[in-house]
Nucleic acid binder design. Structure first.
Lengths: 203, 203
DNA sequence: CCTCCAGGTTAACGACCGCTAACCTCGCTG
DNA sequence: CAGCGAGGTTAGCGGTCGTTAACCTGGAGG
């Protein structure tokens, strides 16, 4: 939380590099020596900042889930009663896309290494994720009332899959451009939701 | 290929269980002893069937990519000039959905453990995947001519993300039902493609 | 100036893991 | 029935990895 303006670097450096490495080679595929080397220190020096390798992954995953949920709640509150549900959904989609484009390693970890956590941490992360999903489901059902609740939940998960596909889009900066990609993803997400309705604009 | 009618051989049993375990806990998170235990033999007995743990993953990934590509080519050929491009796209979507619903562990491995392969195997898998994507891109561009080629490719990757979200839908058989889920995914995929077009039915 | 602590270092331990070696035991087949 | 190969078994080696132990160092505070 105390990270946006200040720069108490080491810990955050470590987390950032660990996230990148975990996303690239998997949690079990990365050694602590590599993480250390990535931030200029070597090996067990990491244990001055974290009690263990597991703790790094836990902090990353809890942080991601929390950030997503917090951001979504903020967007929901900002719009409040004024703007329509459709605008809120657009805001949620925009926020998720920003995250997926900004922090690709994190979005990768988010649905890939969850099972490597201790039981307590995993439960916490899943709870945060569930709240995030439920928040989306409510908004989606308001915009598309023909959707049953299970259908809406499935649709939300599927759209997450669509939005989280950013790591597969371009190995390096091969994307057309950030703005264009974001717009494309946004349109597709809306189109997917719209088509999820039984009487929608499917075919 | 010699597996549909005959009883599953040891080799196929091993591959199936290995796929499940790799998907659940990651390639590096599963030991050969666990794979052996899952098929009733124990430990190094696996080496009577495979030269090593890497070889199992390689065979799985090559097999998946090949099956997907072969199936797509068959569907493209079956439709030939008779049916329209839109029907071919529907057929491709249907095939991918069947795969994603049938073999969830495989679809998970497919975009998760690719980097754990030896260079030669990884190149082969990537080549198969690229051909599969390009096949989709051509069909999609025929159905939605307003899409530029990069946009179509991004859209295809994103729809794969959407369709491959099946593992997140229900931990067990909590899905509404296979048919309903398949239909929902199909409509969403079509809706996403349609909305990808610049002047599409976005909002 | 002495102290102390945050933040490093290297050495090494213990566990685990992939794989090999050596051996066993069926069910064929000549 | 002898022989043998397919398909197992257990024991154990070598390497890697997470973690701990013991030690070092520079800068802030009394």
């Amino acid at each position: 939380m105390a990270s946006r303006t200040d720069a108490p670097t080491r810990r955050e450096q470590i987390l950032k590099e660990a996230a990148r490495l975990f996303a690239e080679r998997g949690f079990h595929g990365v050694g602590v020596d590599e993480i250390g080397a990535a931030v200029g220190i070597s090996g067990p020096g990491l244990y001055r900042h974290f009690p263990g390798k597991d703790a790094m992954l836990a902090e990353l995953l809890v942080g991601i889930s929390g950030q997503l949920l917090t951001g979504a709640r903020r967007r929901l509150a900002e719009a409040d009663g004024a703007t329509g549900a459709s605008a809120v959904l657009d805001s949620l989609i925009e926020g998720h896309i920003d995250f997926a484009l900004d922090d690709r390693p994190l979005i990768t970890l988010h649905d890939r290494e969850l099972d490597r956590l201790r039981d307590s941490d995993r439960k916490l992360v899943r709870q945060l994720q569930r709240q995030y999903v439920e928040l989306w489901v409510e908004v989606v059902r308001e915009v598309y009332p023909a959707l049953t609740e299970p259908a809406a939940r499935s649709a939300v998960h599927s759209v997450f899959g669509l939005l989280n596909s950013t790591p597969h889009l371009g190995r390096a900066g091969t994307l057309p451009s950030r703005g264009v990609t974001a717009e494309l993803l946004h349109r597709m997400a809306r189109g997917a939701f719209a088509a999820a309705e039984p009487g929608g604009a499917g075919d």
